[in-house]
């Protein structure tokens, strides 16, 4: 499959650059591995406790429910406003 082929090539690249520049590769490697394939692998352990799942700092604010954009002064809105002014004039 092409996806896995691509994945393995990125891993090889990461390993190669690892030899050249350790620090840089350390940062790149996880990212490259993350995109490899979509197989949900078996967990390395069978069971765990709730503490193992706690996000650091207890930050559980994951979702923004109020995301409406009220900004009318940025370029996007200014351009749109000009466009709307034309309505009815023609």
């Amino acid at each position: 499959m092409s996806a896995s082929a691509q994945g393995s090539s990125t891993t090889t690249k990461a390993v190669v650059s690892d030899a050249k520049n350790g620090d840089e590769a350390k940062e790149q490697k996880p990212a490259a591995q993350l995109e490899e394939d979509d197989e949900f692998e078996d967990f390395p352990m069978e069971d765990w406790t709730e503490e193992d799942t706690q996000l650091p700092g207890g930050n559980t604010h994951l979702w923004e429910e109020s995301w409406d954009d009220d900004d009318t002064s940025e370029d996007f809105s200014v351009q749109l406003k000009e466009e709307l002014k034309k309505v009815g004039k023609a």
Binding site: E41, W48, T53, Q54, L55, P56
Partner: peptide
């Protein structure tokens, strides 16, 4: 419920 361990990052 997924552990935050580095070993479970892919999941």
């Amino acid at each position: 419920e997924c552990p935050i361990h580095a070993s479970c990052l892919k999941q």
